[in-house]
Amino acid sequence: MALIDLANPTRFLDLVRRVLPWLIAATVIAFAIGLTMAMNAPDDYQQGATVKIMFLHVPAAWLAMLCWALMSVAALGTLVWRHPLADVAGKAAAPIGAALTFTCLVTGSLWGRPMWGTYWVWDARLTSVLVLFLLYLGVLALYWTAEDPNRGARAAAVLVLVGAINLPIIKFSVDWWNTLHQGESIFRAGGPEIDPTILRPLFAMALAFLLLFVTLHLAAMRNEILRRRVRTMQMMQAQTA
């Protein structure tokens, strides 16, 4: 099936219907394997069992950033190529990205409690993720407030692209801000080199998260297409009444 066929929402819905059960199964299996590997991974000599939070925390962070990248491509698709599925893809990805970022923040905070003795420190990395979370929420807020879905999609696309350009700048400035202040309460978690016994389960979990993301995203895109069809049908019903 060529990419051009996927541009047709009906073909796309067909594809989703066929692929989704397999993706769900693959996600479940990948999580079963990943979590088993993570459970069997050795404890850190310093942090003990709490290091296992990393197997949720790090993949969530990776996927959260990947999701913004995907939204940026979708935003280009909306603005430049006016691809019919692009803004559906962007809109469907935003809440998932926000949820992944939130997962990353919560797991990071739970991880930080035993390590730092507090749920939150204004560590450069954590803070960057928090700003990413705020950007996600901004995009979501834009989708919520827009009454006309098409105009909302274009506005959100602009915001996503601006965000994509700004993310490195934000990251840089947060790093600079953090080293500038060097508060006494900052502890850097610069542990030893990561051992393969940790790395392998980490990649397994990352794969599981990736599958989860693809599954959720396709399902969300399907829902969005169906939601738009309902809206169109309502409009038609209102016209003929």
């Binding site: 420190v121 204004w122 807020a141 801000w177 006494e184 900052i186």
Partner: peptide, 24 residues
């Protein structure tokens, strides 16, 4: 409802950027 809470979150987040990350 979420918009007010979101604004609240952003205002609170900006303060440490202005004051520095000193938890105490």
């Amino acid at each position: 409802a979420l918009m007010g809470a979101l604004f609240f979150l952003i205002v609170v987040t900006l303060v440490p950027f202005a004051l520095g990350p000193d938890l105490a």
